[in-house]
């Protein structure tokens, strides 16, 4: 057997081998699953990861379908004034109820848990950001004229709820953890009045909770990823 051929074949095999090992190591590292000794636990974790992936794939398909729908709609309404007006109405409605991505000037409020030691205060619970704190900040933002709000990329829509879920909070049924980055689109000068004396951010800072407000001219708020379904509310003719 020719020695050159042997060495080339073995070299290629080793190339494939190390390539596979590197890809595998990176995949396992990326899924950040710490290997537990418990067989059951590992299986459950793998299952969850699989379902997550499947969900993401389906969601991508949905987005593609929506893009196609948008294109179809545009091509079919091109030469009809009445339909074009309706199309504009749909777009406006989607913007209002949070079904389209919006961008504009506004503020970013960041709420983070206090960095103080838990045994340095009487009530450790006062060092955490609670669902009520987030709700109050949202209320103040709406009061100051915010047009679109998202918390850690979760868009607030008319049917959104914010509730306590243990050490995280539930927004739109999705789990969201601290630090909370609340983005709001509106007039930045008006929205930044949240930092006024006696405002809710001041109140949070007194409890040594991190509450930062940053003005920005370019904020992008994602669209709502869930489904808004109206079963009981009927339009009055």
């Amino acid at each position: 057997m020719n020695k050159k051929v042997i060495s080339i074949v073995l070299g290629i095999m080793c190339f494939a081998l190390t390539f596979g090992i590197c890809v595998q190591v990176r995949t396992v590292k990326n899924s950040n699953s710490t290997v537990s000794q418990n067989y059951e636990e590992n299986n459950l974790r793998a299952e969850v990861l699989k379902y997550k992936e499947r969900y993401e794939n389906k969601y991508r398909e949905l987005e593609k379908a929506e893009d196609q729908l948008e294109k179809e709609r545009q091509s079919s309404t091109q030469n009809n004034e009445e339909l074009e007006r309706r199309e504009e109405e749909i777009k406006k409605g989607n913007k209002m109820i949070g079904l389209s991505e919006v961008t504009g000037p506004g503020v970013i409020v960041t709420l983070s848990d206090s960095k103080q030691e838990t045994n340095s205060v009487l009530n450790p619970s006062s060092l955490l950001v609670h669902d009520a704190d987030v709700l109050s900040v949202i209320n103040e933002l709406k009061n100051a004229g915010a047009e679109a709000i998202s918390i850690n990329e979760q868009r607030l829509v008319p049917t959104s709820s914010i509730s306590c879920g243990g050490n995280i909070i539930d927004i739109n049924g999705e789990k969201v953890g601290a630090p909370f980055e609340i983005k709001a689109i509106g007039l930045p000068e008006q929205l930044s009045s949240l930092t006024r004396q006696g405002g809710y951010l001041e109140f949070l800072r007194n409890d040594s909770i991190g509450a930062e407000l940053k003005k920005s001219n370019n904020i992008t708020i994602p669209k709502y990823t869930g489904l808004i379904s109206y079963q009981y509310a009927k339009t009055v003719e």
Partner: peptide
Amino acid sequence: IAILIGCVVGALIGM
């Protein structure tokens, strides 16, 4: 030498 080269190139591309 061939095995070594294969391993190094595989690791670099795999990364």
